[in-house]
């Protein structure tokens, strides 16, 4: 674990891998819910890092460091994660490209993707866009050479070590293998985003 300065009121905590990120984020989130981090303004993970931002001028970063000093990063998060199941149709425009790259049939791509047990590593790119860890190695593929100018909402894609569902229409370079018709982000929803860091996610084939 390494603390990297990120301006006067934030720290970027660099960790050894995705599971340490999940544990560190969960430990800080639980401390916040116990009322131990009253000055914490933002708590967000990345792929190998966790950022904690506090109220300017507060002593909040000391409290963040104290919580992490007391956390066993090799243990999984103490609290049970939420479990979310998303319906998917494997009908994406890049399904054949992904199958060809993986040396699999399109049916096998769908089978491997739907068998995965995923965790929301972090959100970014757009509101409600969750980067899911746990993708089958054969499906870990590069982005498209030329990104699409418009990817429809609900598109299920793969890129590098992650899979994700596009919450809204946007430009995007992920290889698209399917679609999901559950709205993933609604600014009036409680909560507004279906996926938050730490959630466990499964896909289920929609007939």
């Amino acid at each position: 674990m390494r603390f990297r300065r990120c301006g006067a009121d934030a720290v970027l905590v660099e960790l050894a891998g995705a599971s340490e990120v999940d544990t560190a984020r969960a430990a800080l989130d639980e401390a916040r819910q116990r009322g131990e981090l009253p000055d914490l303004v933002e708590l967000l993970p990345g792929a190998r890092t966790v950022l904690a931002a506090v109220r300017p001028g507060s002593r909040g970063l000391d409290a963040v460091r104290a919580v992490l000093a007391d956390t066993n990063l090799t243990a999984p998060p103490a609290r049970e994660a939420r479990e979310i199941t998303l319906p998917v149709r494997y009908d994406g425009p890049d399904l054949e490209l992904v199958a060809e790259t993986a040396g699999l049939s399109t049916t096998e791509v769908a089978e491997r993707h739907v068998a995965g047990e995923y965790t929301v590593a972090f959100c970014g790119f757009a509101p409600g866009f969750g980067y899911l860890n746990g993708l089958d190695a054969a499906l870990q593929q590069p982005r498209l050479d030329t990104p699409r100018t418009r990817v429809p909402a609900g598109s299920v894609g793969v890129a590098g070590e992650f899979t994700a569902v596009y919450p809204g229409a946007s430009p995007g370079g992920w290889r698209l293998i399917g679609s999901c018709d559950v709205p993933l982000f609604d600014p009036h929803g409680q909560p507004p985003a279906v996926l938050a860091p730490g959630d466990r996610v499964r896909f289920e084939v929609r007939s």
Binding site: G7, L12, A47, R48, G124
Partner: peptide, 10 residues
């Protein structure tokens, strides 16, 4: 870099 959080002013 593997995607990491950024803040205003970065």
């Amino acid at each position: 870099l593997p995607s990491e959080p950024v803040i205003t002013g970065a």
